[in-house]
Design a protein around this nucleic acid. Structure first.
Lengths: 248, 248
DNA sequence: CTCGCACGTTGACTTGGATCAAAGGGGCAC
DNA sequence: GTGCCCCTTTGATCCAAGTCAACGTGCGAG
């Protein structure tokens, strides 16, 4: 029961971020914190930024200062090779953190691009470290988030290293479905924010292969797809696709 | 209590670890700590374990309690799919940490296997968190290590997602060379501890493809390879291999 | 030391996904 | 509203790596 609402009247001069007013508690950094602890976190989370579709939140090589929590919208992160080859390393949605890769060298090691108009909360990393020396729950949760990123990356390595094209796309769709569900959206129907080429880059496939796999899934009645709109029709078969090896 | 060089081969009582006596300072967790701080870390690093070649340090699904620092030896980590497909997610050598993936769910998410007789220092994770609330340098360095793991994984995703077989093997050899160098070994000559199949699993290739790529490199005078012994003859060309896209 | 078997190499053939090409269609800027 | 360009789909062909097979070989268990 926050009584601070009454304390701050209508004055909205500064659009200060406030984790305590944010409905992303259960997805984002404040998970498990007491109300008093969240208010401490409020002081650390400096500001909210708006990023328009197509704009960079940060670029590889830039100095690392803050990590970012996605308040609303959708991002991709990617790495570029000198010869222009691109690997999308992840897609980030509401409540997920961006910039963890920058801690190691104090410079961002990838690009973060908004795939739709988005808002992020910037969290100066040194402040976060300070606060997590005070609040054990915050420290532990932050470690879990970093570790989860490592586990996620291992999952992608498994996908890229051992799966066939259709398995990869099935895994991708099921992962999206599960993350939309966790955010209160439909598990079976969603809009993709990324192009076929970006999906392909993430999955280690060419855009034509992604497109063909979508068509095949549709032919077989697993999904209904029209451009970026996807409806999952047979989630069971989609899951089975991944557990069968290629030869039956 | 030091001077355990003449370790009796029969009594394998767990030897007390001491970071302060360990020559891995500059690679391992104590990096940047003062002498007094390292002594605090000594109290936390509970014990050293010997792991014989082929034995598991931990298995996917086991409860997570500690992370491990490789004191000597060589490990691989891998993830298994239900249908038996395996993805090697990494190779760990002296001074590197194992088990970071277990923090997120409090259970290990992969298997860690010794590729040669090895020793590890177990670091109970809750103690490490406790100490890193006290010692800012330790906290920050631990965060850097986790972040470095994420960056490394992104590198592997790039490799798996965009590179051709020979580029992958070149990247792999150069990475090993660089890590051996950092440990004071020759940058140009080393023994592989893993089989062609394990290399293949890590690189998303079949063992025959790995073998053929080795042979090709040898034909072209880039390396001399005989079984697990590798000598790099032309590091410049090996690096060039990676920056050219497939078509010239 | 030596014997057996796991590991490695090489060849012939197959194939899944890449490449090249061409033709819609839909969303966004104006 | 409308026009253009990017995104997507689909077809035809190619090729890098996978698969299948057979034969070496060197290491470590005994």
């Amino acid at each position: 029961m926050p009584n601070r609402k009454a304390a701050t009247p209508i004055t909205l001069a500064v659009v200060k971020t406030a984790c305590s007013n944010c409905n992303l508690h259960e997805l984002c950094l404040p998970l498990g914190l007491s109300h008093a602890e969240i208010e401490k976190l409020d002081e650390v989370v400096s500001a909210r930024h708006r990023i328009k579709r197509g704009e960079h939140l940060y670029r590889a090589g830039e100095t690392f200062n803050s990590i970012y929590a996605v308040r609303s919208g959708f991002f991709k992160t990617d790495v570029l090779l000198e010869d222009g080859r691109e690997q999308v390393t992840g897609f980030q949605m509401t409540g997920e953190l961006l910039g963890l890769d920058g801690i190691s060298t104090e410079a961002h090691s990838c690009n973060a691009v908004a795939l739709e108009d988005s808002e992020v909360c910037a969290i100066p990393f040194s402040h976060l470290e300070g606060l997590s020396r005070e609040i054990q729950t915050l420290q532990h949760h932050f470690h879990k988030v970093m570790s989860r990123e490592i586990v996620r990356d291992h999952g992608v390595m498994m996908l890229l290293g051992t799966m066939r094209a259709e398995e990869r796309l099935a895994a991708f769709l099921l992962n999206l479905s599960q993350r939309f569900t966790a955010r209160g959206y439909s598990p079976a129907e969603f809009y993709l924010r990324m192009t076929r080429e970006e999906i392909g880059s993430y999955l280690g496939l060419k855009l034509e292969t992604v497109s063909r796999a979508f068509s095949r899934f549709q032919e077989e009645g697993l999904i209904a797809v029209q451009q970026k709109h996807v409806r999952i029709l047979d989630i069971v078969k989609l899951k089975q696709l991944m557990s069968h090896h290629h030869r039956e």
